[in-house]
Design a protein around this nucleic acid. Sequence first.
DNA 1: GTCTATAGCTGGATAGAC
DNA 2: GTCTATCCAGCTATAGAC
Lengths: 197, 197
Amino acid sequence: MARSRRSPSNDAPARGALLDAAETLMLEEGYAAVTTRRVAARAGVNNGLIHYYFGTMDSMFVDLFRRSVGRSFAQMPTTSSTQPLWEMWEAMRDFSGNALMSEFIALSNHRPLVREEIASQSALVREAHVVEMSRVLASYGVVEPEASPAAIGLLMMGTARFLQMEAAFGLTVGHDDLIQVIERRIAMLEGDRIRTA
Amino acid sequence: MARSRRSPSNDAPARGALLDAAETLMLEEGYAAVTTRRVAARAGVNNGLIHYYFGTMDSMFVDLFRRSVGRSFAQMPTTSSTQPLWEMWEAMRDFSGNALMSEFIALSNHRPLVREEIASQSALVREAHVVEMSRVLASYGVVEPEASPAAIGLLMMGTARFLQMEAAFGLTVGHDDLIQVIERRIAMLEGDRIRTA
DNA sequence: GTCTATAGCTGGATAGAC
DNA sequence: GTCTATCCAGCTATAGAC
């Protein structure tokens, strides 16, 4: 397949390096540290290149967010999983994108473009979650209305995020208790977690 | 009681006006909008005054956070509440400090002083929550280990925060479902919510 | 206490050489 | 594509007049 010659190219090494640098900075020092100069320095290129590839910083943030969402989608448990609930729960808990997401949310407060992107992408992600959760619960014979698939998904997601956020501040009181409550429920449906690794 | 003459005074009108202005800016446009110039402009004073009262911006953020935590403490359900769980749940849900808290968390990522302050204050707040929750559950005869007081508190808090965050992006799928799940549990212990107003 | 003025820095963005 | 050089805006913080 012949390489198209449109400029600027979408898969140039420097472009990816810039996104990587921006993501690392965002995780390590917060979004306020993501400036043209610092991103470029970490990527080992000149800051002018950011505008060459992305136009504006707004646009770079949007591209970075899209890349991150794409990854989390690719990581979602497949239909053929043997323990889909366990896998969802683990994905929600250890997904390092949680920290990144917190930064994007704060960022969206003063960058309308980022805000719109988060809103639309999040709606898609949640829709996919609900579809998957409904399928899984139906297969286990769980019926409403004790808790709808959407509610269960929200509960797991909210808990995972909150625990992670607290832990980042050294707060862990009650964490193990809450994790056990949730995992006991999961185990009732699909048994103890089978370690694959 | 004679007014002490230490300078700068802690209850000067300008000082409070500056904190109010900073809080409003933080909520409306995110912490990045909280600069000396913008805060001073909104408070209707000169930006030099910020350094006069607080020294540095770091220090101003810490003072602002303390004030906010103090308020949320004052708002906590009292021991004599007739429906303490309902009141806690409502305080967790509509407390506008939730939005402010998100900003402080993001801010803490690159301001060590703010980070330490949040960590220590949050530990105190959670401790108070657990004590209160234990007392309430014990009075209802709820026993462990189905769910410890700390776990229940975490679950409510995490859910309240997550729902509010999602709602800020226009995401409300499954929210009513989840709220009902939680409120049904509360109602099992202390009956339907009695409207006081 | 509150102001003006300013020093000194860092940021986003662009023009143009290579 | 990648660089150097540069413009202009906005920031924190301080000095000193009132």
